[in-house]
Design a protein around this nucleic acid. Structure first.
Lengths: 148, 148
DNA sequence: ATATATTAATTGACATATCAATCATTGATA
DNA sequence: TATCAATGATTGATATGTCAATTAATATAT
């Protein structure tokens, strides 16, 4: 009659899992920034800019999946720190085109290295199968809650 | 000479995984609050208070692993909304003791139900083995970055 | 052609988190 | 016991994110 785990514990375990994921994410955010010197979102923006010559803010916004307002503010700061340059589009005066500066292009390599190192540490001890399954589960959780 | 995956792709896949986890977490935060009507941290605070008669803010802070300042602000709002009550400790006038009000104690049941429902949805299609492995991997990632 | 819609970007108001500084109280010590 | 250190809570400054309202430019429709 005994299953592996009483049904009443399942709820508790899953709640604990959610809580653990929440805490893990907070840890990751904090440590990522500490190790790399830049936040995940900010580096994500730079990452997309790196792969392209120029990009409108809206395109960028859709790629990195951050609010319009947040993009504007990130880019302002990145511009102020000399990492990116912005200019109005000639064809459509509403759009602002963004690109990495030379300085930004060289600095991002350093950030990427730190990021890779961070990830290596975070995932050390994980087998290839585990990583695949983890990616799969993350994807499925995303799917499951995307309907709401 | 061919391994399963060229080494250069591993970095990219892991970076994608990190990014997916980041996005998942943002999704979870948003949808959780939408579904339950309260944020994860806030409900976490109530959850700990539920299991106990009274608690000092510092004890609570350590349990939920949120900054002192954030705790103070959460509790102020929870007090304003009638969910919790606070009083100074007689033995030590520095400490503030917190407890759920009757109203808070009854409302939390509703929140917990919504939360359980949310989690069920999020984890639907996950086998017991998968859940165990996921919990294990989350724990290991946490361990791996705790040193930094 | 002019009024109306839509689109891109910005700004303001708000929520939540952190860190650093401060205040009040208590404990320890010289 | 008078001083100094440690502790609990609060507050202020700052960072990042959201949503809603606004502004400017372009597209559409009558």
């Amino acid at each position: 009659m005994l299953k592996e785990v009483p049904i009443t514990n399942t709820h508790q375990e899953q709640a604990t899992l959610l809580s653990s994921m929440h805490m893990l994410n907070k840890q990751i955010s904090a440590k990522f920034e500490k190790c790399t010197g830049i936040g995940q979102s900010r580096l994500g923006i730079l990452h997309y800019l790196y792969q392209v010559e120029e990009m409108s803010q809206t395109t960028l916004q859709k790629e990195v999946n951050i609010d319009h307002a947040a993009i504007t503010r990130h880019l302002k700061q990145l511009e102020a720190s000399g990492m990116v340059a912005r200019r109005k589009s000639a064809e459509d005066n509403r759009v602002t085109l963004v690109c990495l500066t030379e300085e930004g292009r060289s600095k991002i390599l350093h950030y990427q290295n730190e990021k890779d190192h961070f990830i290596q540490q975070m995932l050390s001890g994980f087998s290839k199968d585990e990583l695949n399954l983890l990616a799969d589960m993350v994807e499925r959780m995303n799917q499951n809650i995307s309907r709401f």
